[in-house]
Structure formats: structure tokens, C-alpha cells
Nucleic acid binder design. Sequence first.
DNA 1: ACTGCAATTGAGACTCAGTCGCAAATGAAG
DNA 2: CTTCATTTGCGACTGAGTCTCAATTGCAGT
Lengths: 174, 174
Amino acid sequence: MNSREQTIFRKYLERRGLKLTSERQALFDELFARHEHMEADELLVRLRTKHKKISRATIYRTLDLLVDSGIVGRVRIGDTGYRYERLRAGEHHDHLICNECGRVIEFFEPAIENLQDEVCERYGFLALSHSHQLRGICRQCRPRAAREHAKSVEGEPLRARGGPRRLRPVPSPR
Amino acid sequence: MNSREQTIFRKYLERRGLKLTSERQALFDELFARHEHMEADELLVRLRTKHKKISRATIYRTLDLLVDSGIVGRVRIGDTGYRYERLRAGEHHDHLICNECGRVIEFFEPAIENLQDEVCERYGFLALSHSHQLRGICRQCRPRAAREHAKSVEGEPLRARGGPRRLRPVPSPR
DNA sequence: ACTGCAATTGAGACTCAGTCGCAAATGAAG
DNA sequence: CTTCATTTGCGACTGAGTCTCAATTGCAGT
């Protein structure tokens, strides 16, 4: 493989006098083989099952390099840990995350990006990065979610929850 | 204190047959006493120094209730742990976060909110909550950041970093 | 190809935020 | 004032991520 990103990564390492080891290459390949959002441990397992021995520490260290080189993004999708995703050079996107099925949908809305710049100007703020995520229910899950909601307490609106912290369900009022 | 939020919280507890204990009240008061973004441990310390004995577990449990009742927001500001902030009923805001000084600036841009709705419609997505954060350098820190940047390697653009993971600084090319 | 050595790795101990289980304590309905 | 479900504190636990250090390995120079 000799993608644009591969070159960027090689040059990035070179520039800082770092080595392109077989572990780094393997992790790079795994991450760029498919377009998914993966967790560190997931990558560890994938590589291990591919007979490639690699330690957890190395996964994290290499992930830092990939993120720092700009070709991989580190995102918080759930409420625990990070997910890593390949970034296509020059492209940018934000995320729609389904609370039901976990699906992650990427979106890009130039008008929002412009408004962000405007907000920054308003506050004299120099933006270096941003994260913008909408959580809710995706098209596929909406019918099911609506059915289940119907069974629950009337008057209790479908509400956002900070995370998957589990609280006792609301008892029916007697 | 008998604020709007106090009432919401009391009713919320009532509705689920939960008790308004002195610990819960104390945590509520602490959180609503000032408009700041606080970490769980910070709240623990504050309450402890105020002669109020309370355990870490209770802090977390109560925070869950406050968040679930909708009067407190749980936000990821740094890259580790959550921060909690009072939410004024009916108001909403997003965050500008300074990488240099840690300052958190709240902003609200209706046009962005509208565009979000538009994006959701496009994907048939039902949004329940969102988080939108811009990271960068605030007005106060910009002069200093610029000075320091001048001392570093030329041609190395001021770049966003996923988090505060520390990587060796780029050595000057010889 | 061989050497030298700084960069890198793996293993496992460690940290830190947050969670859990349980016996003792307590708020509130009667 | 009683009763008892809810709540609390304690301390053990979990899981993601980090650190240390001895052993290994790329790679620049020969």
C-alpha cells in the first residue's frame, strides 16, 4: 500500500527521527484497511488474531503518533474511551450517533463551519479543532424506539441522557 | 434557596419516590452556588472543607440524579473525566475551550442550532442532545501563544492536538 | 553486509475516574 | 414513634490508559 496517508506518516516519522517499525506499519494498515471507528483494544485484538504480536502500550503509543501526524482522528463516541478513525486528507466531518444501535453517521455542513468561524471571531478565539456530535435515534431505529416509548409512562418525554448511566426506571404513578 | 431548579429537583425526586437527603441538598447547593464547571472530586473537596461529610460514591450517584433531572449538564471539557455545570431552564449553550489556560467560554448561535435540525432531517435522525466544542486559544492567550510559537520551528503550523498527550517536541532540523 | 546506538518494544505494575456490594443509617408515610 | 424502603459510607473493584525498564530492533554510516 502506498497511499497518500502512508506517505504523510512516513514523512512525519522521518522528520522527527522516528522509525517506521513493523508494529507501526501493521497498526497503520489495520486502521486504513477499512473505514471504521475503532477502539484501541479492538485494534489490539484484530492484530493479535492476525498472528501479529503487539503490546497494548505500543498500540496506544502508535495511535498517538498517527493522531499527531494528522491522518487519524481521535473521537469520543460512547462515554468511555476513544475511537480512532482514518481521516482523509483535507476532508472533515462531524458525527451523528445513534443511542439505540450505536451507528455512527458522518456529516458535513459547510454553513455550520462558517458560523463557527463567526462565533470565534466574536470572542477573539483562535479555533484549532472542534468536535460536534448529535446524539439521538437514527432512521432505522426510530420505528422501534417509538413503539417502545409508547409502552412506557405517558407524559414522560423521550429525553436525552448524559450517558448510559443506568437509573431505575420511573415507576408508574399510583 | 428556593429557585426554579430547586423545585424541579424536589419534584423529580418525589416523582420517583426518592428522598431529598441532606447530602443531595448539599451537593445541589454547591453546584448552584456559583456558575462554574466543576469536577466530581472538586465538589467532594468543597463539601468536605465545609464540614459536610459526604462520600465519593454519593457524589457520583447524586450527580447522576441531577443530570437525569435535566438541571445539571455533564460535559467533557478536558480529555479526562467529566465536568458538571448548572443548566438554566430553557437555556442552552455550547463551549469554546482554551488549550492554553483551560478557560471555558459559553456561546450560543441560533443559526447553528437551526442548521443542526436541517442536518438531522437530511438523515432522518431524531436528535436528543448534542455537544459542540471548539478548542483553540482564547483572546487572552493569543499574544503569548504567538510569541512562544515564534520561538519554535518555522514551517510547523500551530496544529490541533487530539488531547494533552505529550509527544516529544519536534527537533530543529539540522 | 556489519556495527553502533538511539529509538522502540513488551510485560506488567501502576494510576485515576468511576462503579459496586453490603451493612449500618436515615427520611418520611402512617 | 414506628416501620421500612431508600440512602449512605466504606473499601474493594474495574477498565482505559500510562509508565518503567531491560531486551530488541531499525537505520545511518561504513
